[in-house]
Design a protein around this nucleic acid. Structure first.
Length: 156
DNA sequence: GCCAACGTTGGC
DNA sequence: GCCAACGTTGGC
């Protein structure tokens, strides 16, 4: 089974690639996803060993800042039934969980961020969801080719 | 099941 | 801080 590739969006003021690196085991649960499309990607298609581009949104330097790896597959997101949690959803419960999360582990912080401008300008990255206007999906699939172009660009 | 209103996202 | 684009909600 071939490995899949993903893009994870995060606001670095909330959670950055460096925050991930500083976690115990350099691992964190990707909780709080409350969008069905993004959930379905996690639930149906994400496997251990898949790699993710860690994208910084809503910040000074918007773009891909590093790489993480899926180290735990989809399981119920318990923050959904914790009253008072920012991501609380009364329609979810331990008996009937509506939302899932995966665990991701830090792999690499790029020597420089590959900016959204570069992605938009690159002829082979035009199809990336993140390059398209109005895109709000926090987890999107990327192709192996896209993944590799970005990793290579980070080292230039 | 339609669709207007609303809240959120996220680039700028 | 602005605002376009989008997803969700709820009245009908």
């Amino acid at each position: 089974m071939a490995r899949n590739y993903w893009l994870f969006k995060s606001e670095p003021s909330e959670f950055s690639i460096d925050d991930l690196k500083n976690r115990p085991n350099q691992t964190e649960s990707w909780d709080g996803v409350r969008n069905y499309q993004a959930r379905n990607f996690m639930r149906d298609d994400m496997k251990c060993g898949d790699l993710g581009l860690f994208y910084h949104s809503n910040c000074d330097e918007v773009g891909v800042a590093g790489v993480c790896e899926i180290t735990q597959e989809a399981h119920p997101d318990h923050t959904a039934w914790e009253k008072g949690n920012k991501h609380f959803d009364e329609k979810s419960s331990p008996e009937n969980p509506r939302w899932v999360m995966v665990a991701v582990t830090w792999k690499e912080t790029f020597p420089r961020t590959v900016t959204l401008d570069e992605i938009k300008a690159h002829p082979k990255l035009q199809n990336m969801r993140v390059a398209q206007r109005g895109n709000r999906l926090s987890i999107t699939p990327v192709t192996k080719a896209e993944f590799e172009i970005i990793c290579k660009a980070a080292r230039k």
